[in-house]
């Protein structure tokens, strides 16, 4: 029991350390929140004029009025979470490169505890920034919704991204090389996640490819939470039916996301078992 308590304390302290380092870099905090908000305005109001929103509404099985801004907002928040949480993979490689990881890995704390602490903090910070963007959208655009499920959905997506980021980071010695992944892996994966257009409207091979994309499930969960809250705002009396119809979809998306998280976490631990993180 004592060992368990210490392990929990170690996970918390590793996460808290990362959180403090992020929080004290105010410039980074502010810029990463403002950037997606500006993108949303340009994308939502600009691209919204030329996109056939009725076709999108049919593809996502949404009955009722919807604007392109409303459709891409959860995708934009998901992009914020993915970018921020994935950036922790960069920090991880940088720490390896500059030796800052050594005090952690040369401590008696098991490597999986170190990795878990880092993943949780990266996921939490990504989700927190996503939530701030959501709040700004809620205040500015009025039609944007927010519910108690928003943060957990963003957190799951953030944890997924951080796990993937650290997994990929194990294969890099230089943080500069890791950044290439952003253009060759992350941006294509975001585009294929349904964040900006429904994957269902793409050619069959893209749909098949999306099924192997972990972000597809994470972003899908976030989008379903938004649709759930929109439907809830419209008709609160139908809560029971909504939980059954939309809730199952959310649960399913979260379950698939968790399966990817578990898969990459196990892979990380297999790799680091006989190999130093240095």
């Amino acid at each position: 029991m004592e060992k368990f308590k210490i392990t929990i304390l170690q996970i918390i302290i590793i996460s808290y350390r990362e959180f403090l380092k992020w929080w004290r870099n105010k410039f980074k905090v502010i810029t990463t929140v403002i950037q997606p908000f500006i993108w949303t305005i340009f994308f939502g109001l600009g691209l919204g004029k030329i996109v056939n929103i009725n076709e999108i509404a049919r593809a996502i099985n949404y009955q009722g009025e919807i604007s392109y801004l409303l459709f891409i907002f959860p995708g934009m928040i998901s992009t914020t979470v993915i970018f921020i949480s994935f950036n922790f993979g960069h920090s991880f490689v940088e720490e390896k490169e500059r030796g800052f990881l050594r005090p952690l890995i040369l401590s008696p704390t098991p490597d999986w505890v170190i990795v878990l602490g880092k993943i949780l903090s990266a996921g939490f910070i990504g989700a927190l920034q996503g939530l701030i963007v959501n709040l700004l959208g809620f205040i500015y655009f009025k039609e944007i919704s927010i519910t108690f499920l928003t943060f957990p959905a963003l957190l799951v997506l953030g944890i997924l991204t951080a796990t993937l980021g650290i997994f990929l980071g194990l294969f890099f010695k230089k943080a500069g090389s890791y950044d290439i992944l952003l253009f060759y892996v992350i941006i294509p994966a975001i585009l294929l996640s349904g964040a900006y257009f429904p994957v269902e409207l793409t050619p069959l091979w893209m749909i098949r490819l999306a099924q192997f994309n972990p972000f597809y499930y994470g972003v899908e969960t976030v989008k379903k939470v938004f649709v759930f809250s929109l439907s809830l705002e419209k008709d609160f009396s139908n809560l029971k039916e909504l939980i059954i119809t939309k809730g199952i979809g959310i649960f399913e998306g979260a379950l698939y996301t968790f399966m990817f998280i578990a898969f990459f976490f196990v892979l990380i631990n297999v790799i680091i078992k006989n190999k130093s993180l240095d």
Binding site: R24, P103, S107
Partner: peptide, 20 residues
Amino acid sequence: TLDVILTVRENLFFHAILFG
């Protein structure tokens, strides 16, 4: 290998927790 953005106390405290 100290975290320059953290205080002396924080650096030492985090390390002590890592050592159980």
